[in-house]
């Protein structure tokens, strides 16, 4: 389910079935890495749309957390911790963060949820057919990952 009125109504009526929350992490920078942060953000937002469609009934897909990429680690970690505290008040068994920004990999130990890191692909330089099949591949991998996590915990 997405963070839109219709879906949230559905969520409120079926909370016991929605045990997973996903927060995409979107980096922003105006420095030398402006292009990289753009493609990371674009890539993850495309993937999250597909992922949500696949698992609509079980995951709540948040609009995403947008942050300034060169903020110090402790600031970013604190923010994520605050998100986590919020999620813990709800009954989510699984918390996932979805990102292309590899900096998160070193921060992962500091929080509880699982980080899913996928290197972003230069989608803008691909023609549409190819692009879709690449995305499809990535989505399949993600699906696999989610199903596996669920099976391990059920």
């Amino acid at each position: 389910m997405k963070w839109v009125a219709n879906d949230i109504d559905m969520y409120l009526g079926a909370k016991e079935y929605v045990d997973t929350i996903v927060l995409p992490l979107f980096p922003i920078s105006f420095g030398d890495d402006i292009k990289q942060t753009t493609s990371m953000t674009e890539f993850i937002s495309l993937l999250s749309i597909q992922l949500e469609r696949q698992f609509k009934g079980r995951i709540l897909m948040l609009p995403g957390y947008t942050y300034i990429k060169n903020n110090p680690d402790n600031v970013l970690i604190d923010d994520i911790k605050r998100w986590e505290a919020e999620f813990q008040n709800q009954s989510f068994n699984h918390v996932f963060y979805l990102t292309s920004d590899s900096d998160w990999r070193t921060r992962e130990e500091s929080f509880e949820g699982s980080l899913i890191w996928l290197p972003s692909l230069p989608l803008e330089s691909m023609d549409e057919k190819y692009r879709n099949s690449i995305l499809e591949d990535q989505v399949q991998q993600l699906i696999h990952l989610f199903v596996k996590k669920w099976q391990n915990n059920d």
Partner: peptide
């Protein structure tokens, strides 16, 4: 589309 809550 699953008729329960809409997964695929």
């Amino acid at each position: 589309i699953c008729k329960h809550l809409g997964c695929t």
